[in-house]
Design a protein around this nucleic acid. Structure first.
Lengths: 343, 343
DNA sequence: CTGAAAGCGCTAACAC
DNA sequence: GTGTTAGCGCTTTCAG
């Protein structure tokens, strides 16, 4: 009913943001000149530059990055599809630092361990024409990315390889890590060493379990009741622990296959047990040094992994035809106490 | 020197991705028809739709989301400028979930506790015309955002308020949390309770220290040597602990002002000390239950905070003129053992 | 040093 | 149902 407040064109400011054309009109110069000022092109007369700048502040003008990118053809952004953003992930932290140092923006999203979600995120990133994508693969079939690779979208896998397509990959040397853990416990006198790990449906779960089996047979041992894999639930872990620790030949040492397994195991152990059972966990854990005993771990070189992933991505952006590379990075043993408990 | 391989237009495929025009040509239909098919517009004949679809797969066409957004005027993306991506941050996790559920993409970046970096990220997000921004403020002066707010960019602060401008904000009730911690220890018989916290240059550090002082004076106590604030370094924490625990009237209980302080304190305590000193930490800590004694904490309702931040953002996107709101969310006491040690 | 005009890839009036 | 056409806001030849 009510008309806008009197004063024809001083009413409620229209919500449309001013564009470069508006600035040009306000400054009384050509569009081209505004563009030059905005992009710090030195070939602009000081008087005009000043007029443009004051028009910019007067109108509250901000360049639209989307239009710029559309015209330029490049987004200056790389994507990271990780399993969990917002959770400790030193590799992602490294990726962010390096991307920033290279002048790239990072668009990060969580796949949340969900294959459909991963698919959605990756396709969306492709449609946004990101310069490249780093992904911690989840799904069992990434064939749908084949067209994207062919169209020249650089994609690098981190932590596990892709399935069904061949792409660059950076990951930890799982077998070496398990070997180091086993060897360490063996050197401390343990002859019955058990392994509890993640499901063998998952690539790293499979790799690590197999590596552990190889350690056992390499030492002429049978696998009997020493290797326990599956989903990580309190119930399954408890059963595995009972089998391993209470048989006729109880294990005196334990290798846990990833961070989540390690934590679940520790929650099942009472302090007295924890002080007698030697444990080496795969993956470092925040606050591992504050536990009693402090936790000995196989720590992935997460920073190196993240850095290498960005480097591979940049190399492929520069040269799309380079051969596909897989880089395996050795983890480190960090001794803190739990792995040095004698047999 | 060498000409491209013979066969004029079958040479190495040009890197340019096909556009809608290419698809239209290939399918022998108009651009508009392709657009309709891509956007699932039902008003397309089945024969044409089929032709378009096969042209799309033949050419390996993917729509360019940037052009689409430029034309549509909306990005469907919100930004989160947090202190540390890739570190445990349940609020960020909540933001991501809700954003996704609302069909919004989340662009996350780390300010890394760096004021200049924060400035850069926020301005960049504004230039990208994100639908809105959630920020964990770092800097001491956010006046540079005033023009953005005026231009209608929705910005919500999380965890601390902005300085120098007024914007929506969601944060924890710091005073209530400190009060709860103090009261809990007091109820367990402690009469000398010390506080060690972050620098009072930081908003939450200041709020919590002041709240603790209010608790002391409210109980008729002097502040003498009981409140220690400053940067979180091992050296400063050690000094603070010595002053608090070894004076003529040693404290029997301790409130630590944030997660980092708590961890640094725990690293300074030998197990014997830890078993006698009552501690309540502000902020929950992963694995707090595995420590000995398990750590009693004031846990922020991080999920609620994240959810509320997105809700405020969406409300402001919908109605830019709504009054500015600050929401304070009470934290919870989680008793695990360390806070229930008697005096 | 500056300005007019074309076009990045897409959507949406508006004809037919 | 389908095609024509004019932009979204920017950069950039190419003339002045």
């Amino acid at each position: 009913m009510n008309p806008p407040p009197s004063g024809a064109d001083t009413g409620p400011r229209p919500k449309r943001r001013p564009t470069m054309v508006d600035v040009a009109r306000e400054a009384g110069v050509a569009l081209r000149t505004v563009s030059r000022v905005v992009n710090d092109d030195p070939t602009v007369g000081e008087t005009n530059a000043a007029k443009v700048r004051s028009a910019i502040t007067a109108l509250n003008y901000r360049p639209d990055e989307r239009a710029r990118q559309l015209r330029l053809g490049a987004t200056g952004t790389i994507g990271a599809a990780v399993r969990r953003i917002a959770e400790t992930n030193p590799a992602l932290a490294a990726i962010e630092h390096i991307a920033r140092a290279s002048g790239l923006t990072l668009l990060a999203a969580s796949t949340d361990f969900d294959e459909a979600r991963e698919h959605e995120i990756l396709i969306s990133m492709c449609r946004q024409r990101l310069e490249g994508i780093i992904v911690e693969p989840i799904g069992e079939n990434h064939g749908y990315l084949q067209p994207e690779l062919e169209a020249g979208m650089p994609i690098v896998a981190m932590d596990r390889p892709m399935t069904g397509i061949s792409a660059d990959c950076v990951m930890t040397d799982n077998a070496a890590g398990i070997g180091t853990a086993f060897h360490h416990l063996h050197q401390h006198g343990h002859r019955r060493i058990a392994y509890i790990g993640d499901s063998e449906h998952i690539y790293s779960g499979r790799e690590r379990a197999n590596a552990f089996r190889a350690c056992l047979t390499g030492h002429g041992q049978a696998l009997d009741n020493l290797v326990h894999t599956g989903d990580i639930t309190a119930h399954r872990i408890r059963t595995a622990l009972e089998t391993a620790l209470h048989g006729p030949e109880p294990a005196t040492a334990l290798v846990t296959g990833n961070m989540e397994t390690t934590i679940t195991v520790l929650r099942q152990l009472d302090p007295e047990q924890a002080s007698r059972l030697a444990i080496v966990g795969f993956d470092d854990i925040p606050l591992a040094d504050l536990l009693q005993p402090a936790l000995t771990v196989i720590a992935q070189n997460t920073t190196t992994i993240g850095r290498t992933a960005v480097e591979h991505l940049q190399a492929r952006i520069t040269n799309p035809d380079r051969p596909i590379q897989t880089t395996i990075i050795a983890p480190n043993l960090i001794t803190r106490g739990s792995g040095e408990i004698p047999a």
